[in-house]
Amino acid sequence: MNTQPSRVLSPELWEQFRQGSRIACARLVSLLENRPDLHPEIRHRLFPLQRGAVRIGITGPPGVGKSTVTSALTRQARVAGHTLAVIAVDPTSPFSGGAFLGDRIRMQDHIGDPGVFIRSLASRDGHGGLSPATPYAAEVFDAFGMDWILIETVGVGQAELDVLNCVDIVILVLQPGTGDIIQALKAGIMEAGDIFLINKADQPGVDMVLDSLRFIFQMDAHRPGYVPPPLLTAAAHTGTGMSEVFETVEQVIAKFRREGRLREKRRQRLEQDIREYIQQELWHRYLQLTDAQPEITRVARELTDSGRSPFPYIEQLKSRIRMERNHDQES
């Protein structure tokens, strides 16, 4: 680590965090949300404290009851003795930059339970159904000692699949009357579900959704070794069917662990992590070398009015970077 320890990250903060202070835990999450410059230092120190909590993504279209399912699943997991963190993501307004975070309204059963920590995150710059800080918040809660981390995405449509990159298991929540939505979802998020859950199963139309899903699974049946994902129904607001959901989650975790998939997911996350930091670093270096940002802004402005293509400029820029690099190597 070549970074100077930051003043914001006092030894007291870390000491309090290790001793189980919820204020310190919440603070670290905020710092990861607000201070990208502190990411390396914080995350480096969190790594040895992590114990491999299972990360469970809960995703699906808006209004299907993701928060209610999350809350009901939390209740089941608590009965079984697991401790949990819930990360609930709601969208940031692209106009004001503000966000209305309403998921806690559906999670009031767990107030005062020290085994549950609920944190709402605004999606901010994230466009894939999560906040960019989500995987880092999960690291904080893992290091804080939670067994399970439930990550509830914003209501998703077709391509908001960031959750895939930061969890071990995905529960895709759907509801009756969404047969057409399933058609629309087929290409994107339908492939993401490790467990399919039809919530609001006390409402009419459940069979139709089940039929559509079975039909989709059947299309994959010819693939060697294909096993269709578990398909469950529940009414999370009354708790009906939720103990089956919990048991299925436990079974899938056990299976993924046995098959080495949890380990593989962790490896993939680390690989992605390293790649992203290198990309960032290179971009940063490049900006320093050429002072490109103001130049790009200026060129874009000129091109906007001229109707010319940007590619000659891009080529010129590339050769300049090559020259800078050669110059670097010589000196």
Binding site: G98, F100, G102, I111
Partner: peptide, 22 residues
């Protein structure tokens, strides 16, 4: 960024939420 807790909250629940949400 506004975390809305809704109706009929106890002071304990409100302070708990404020802690967790920082």
């Amino acid at each position: 960024e506004v975390v809305y807790l809704g109706l009929q909250q106890t002071p304990e629940a409100i302070v708990n939420a404020a802690i967790e949400e920082d």
